[in-house]
Design a binder for these strands. Structure first.
Length: 478
RNA sequence: GGCGGGGUAGCCAAGUGGUAAGGCACGGCUCUGCAAAAGCUGCAUUCGUCGGUUCGAUUCCGACCCUCGCCUCCA
């Protein structure tokens, strides 16, 4: 079997075949954060999804160039800068830093390239110029430049590749910005926004006057600059399908950099939203959690990562604290199994032929090959865990086989990045070890009152005693 | 209004034209001085409603109900 993905362009599953004639290199672009504020975990769901995709591609032997942009100039940012009496750079770098710190806590690999919009102004200007040269873009008296959907269509392109929509029936309502009345058509979008007084110091000079890039143009300019005019994968949240991604296609293909018959992007993949009580998690509804909120409640990055990876990326997923608690329990099950396997393995080296190893890897790969079906993958993992536990408690697993099982998990965990089984929850402080020994002594002389008191004292410090046949051990409680 | 998703046990969530994965919670058991932890184990005659196709549908078709998203900044 090989990887199949759901392509928004065709609304169907397609075999993943990279553009690279060697079949090795993969270009992948993921729409990153707009750094006007702290990102919430709904945003991170998409980034964890991208990370999973990237890791799985790498697991499958592809060499991935992973680009994630940072939008560091945009209306909301400018508002904040003005309100906070700060500079653009100071404001955006603060939130950019926070974003990448969060991303790391969630176990996401750093993208290969992280381009910032403000650092690609020349490329953006170049692209806008190309669109003007081809008669698709047009300037307005105030110095803005817009993209004409009508001219684009007349040039033989199709607007509406990612979704079917009738632009004549767009209902833009009253929310058309006052500075956009120079547009020829309501559906046209800005490539370059002329400077207005509210922009303050945030502007760049251009052949059309001072101003700043429109929202969509940066992604076209940066992705094509770093990955070439045609590349394999473009991911993002489903709310970006329209207008952002549709406009990206329009700009990028209208500029004509692709070879004849080639598309801007071969596969578009969109992640569904995280929900809270049935509604999309969003800043505007105020129903959001940031990573910090959850860490403050005592949850860990890997527990949150696990939760975000527990549902299929194309299904909207209801986030609850109970669900997160459940994720903790489920993850604990994997941890415990891995710890037991590690214990059994001792220093043994893996035996070459071990069935559980083959079952786990093949099963997970098969599941993920099917458009990253993580739910099925977890079913495979948990069946494997049960099988390992059974073998462990019936003492019918050799040290070598246990080592092989641990090896299998490590291989799989390169994809999931949960780090299960690599730590026993931290070092046990010596004084607690002493208390544990004292309790054992009390139990030996049957002074249960005393031993229970020690147990309670440890519990008060969030350490749980596990009495196993091999003796007691301490475990940090959640 | 247009377009696109989704409705599967208490909760979350896979899946298939041939009789329902997995996780959490819950019950039972093992272990234990008692517990806890851990492990094992049990837990949907049924897949929104009503029709149709079929030997057979949760899975295909039609209608309907409910719900969410996009159409406006948005992961």
């Amino acid at each position: 079997m090989s990887l199949r993905v759901f392509n928004t362009l065709s609304r169907s599953m397609e075999a993943f075949v990279p553009l690279d004639p060697q079949g090795k290199g993969v270009g992948m672009y993921c729409c990153g954060p707009t750094v006007h504020d702290v990102a919430h975990i709904g945003n991170f769901r998409t980034f964890v999804f991208s990370d999973l995709m990237r890791r799985f591609l790498e697991h499958r032997g592809y060499k991935v160039r992973h680009v994630m942009n940072v939008t560091d100039v945009e209306d909301k940012i400018i508002q904040r800068v003005r309100a906070g009496k700060t500079t653009l750079k100071a404001h955006t770098s603060k939130y950019e830093e926070a974003f990448f710190a969060d991303l790391e806590r969630l176990g996401c690999l750093k993208p290969t390239h992280i381009p910032r919009a403000t650092e690609f102004i020349p490329a953006i200007l170049e692209l806008i110029q190309a669109l003007l040269d081809r008669g698709i873009g047009y300037g307005t008296p105030d110095g803005s430049v817009y993209f004409s959907i009508e001219k684009y269509r007349r040039a033989g392109f199709r607007y509406g590749q990612l979704l079917s929509l009738n632009t004549d029936e767009l209902r833009p309502g009253e929310r058309v910005a006052a500075d956009e009345y120079g547009k020829e058509s309501i559906a046209d979008f800005a490539l370059w926004k002329a400077r207005v007084p509210e922009d303050g110091d945030v502007y760049w000079s251009s052949p059309w006057g001072e101003g700043r890039p429109g929202w969509h143009i940066e992604c076209s300019a940066m992705s094509m600059k770093l990955l070439g005019p045609s590349f394999d994968l473009h991911l993002g949240g489903e709310d970006l399908i329209f207008p952002h991604h549709e406009d990206e296609i329009a700009q990028s293909e209208a500029a004509g950099a692709q070879c004849p018959g080639c598309r801007f992007v071969k596969y578009w993949m969109h992640g569904a939203h995280l929900l809270v009580e049935g509604k999309k998690m969003s800043k505007s509804l105020g129903n959001y959690f940031t990573l910090r909120d959850l860490l403050a409640k005592g949850f860990t990055g890997r527990e949150i990562r696990f939760l975000l990876m527990s549902a299929h990326y194309r299904e909207s997923f209801n986030f609850t604290l109970e669900g997160l608690q459940g994720a903790r329990s489920a993850l604990g099950r994997i941890d415990d199994c891995l710890n037991r396997l590690n214990e059994r393995a001792g220093g043994a080296t893996a035996s070459s032929e071990d069935l559980s190893r083959a079952d786990l890897c093949a099963g997970v790969e098969e599941a993920l090959d099917h458009d990253l079906n993580v739910a099925q993958a977890w079913a495979v993992v948990f069946e494997w865990v049960r099988e390992c536990n059974r073998a462990l408690s019936e003492a019918r697993i050799s040290a070598e086989a246990a080592a092989a099982a641990v090896g299998a998990w490590r291989r799989i965990d390169k994809i999931f990045a949960l780090g299960a089984g690599f730590s026993s929850g931290g070092e046990v402080p010596p004084e607690l070890e002493a208390m544990l020994a004292e309790r054992q002594e009390a139990r030996r002389v049957k002074d249960f009152k005393r031993s229970d008191a020690i147990r309670d004292a440890l519990k008060a410090q969030n350490w749980i005693i596990e009495d196993t046949p091999a003796g007691p051990r301490l475990k940090k409680s959640g």
